[in-house]
């Protein structure tokens, strides 16, 4: 869906922009909105043609008069939070399908709002960019457990078929 041609005054209203490339699921957007809402910062979603979560977040931040934007890449299942002043570097936070739980997404929305307000950000554990890379290459115990459970399920299913 193409970006709607909205009037300039509308574009300039203070809000955090969330740009999403299809297919954007409601389960991903909603918690982000709730996080922003609880902190009292207005936000608006726009569906766009596509791009990486990071570049969409950067565009969104550039467009926002609050300097903060979020990007959702529906295809890759990634989200990112960006600030206009960080244009040169990477996003403040970004994560992929393994972390798209509602709690994390709501926290991302909260942090977008807190970035606007100048309040300290909230951290779950290892979601700072930089360190995230390390953690994806070394699966956590939690992920290993999930993986094991999955393997056990597949094996039992196969055995039952036979």
């Amino acid at each position: 869906m193409a970006d709607a041609k909205s009037s300039i005054s509308d574009e300039m209203k203070p809000r955090v922009w969330i740009l999403g490339g299809p297919p954007v699921q409601e389960e991903v957007i909603a918690p982000i909105f709730w996080g922003l809402e609880e902190e009292g910062i207005p936000a608006e979603f726009r569906e766009v043609v596509g791009g990486s979560a990071e570049s969409l977040a950067r565009q969104a931040a550039g467009r926002s008069s609050l300097n903060v934007g979020l990007g959702i890449d529906g295809t890759e299942q990634r989200v990112a939070l960006h600030h206009r002043d960080l244009q040169a570097g990477g996003p403040l936070f970004s994560f992929g399908p393994d972390k798209l739980q509602p709690v994390r997404l709501r926290q991302l929305g909260r942090n977008a709002a807190r970035l606007v307000k100048g309040d300290p950000l909230v951290f779950q554990n290892e979601d700072v960019v930089g360190t995230e890379v390390q953690h994806t290459s070394e699966p956590s115990h939690h992920q290993v457990d999930e993986l094991q459970a999955l393997i056990v399920r597949i094996v039992t299913e196969l055995l039952q078929k036979e």
Binding site: D85, G89, L92, G118, D119, L121
Partner: peptide, 10 residues
């Protein structure tokens, strides 16, 4: 350079 986000607002 941007500061560590953990310092932000603190």
């Amino acid at each position: 350079e941007p500061l560590d986000p953990r310092l932000f607002g603190r």
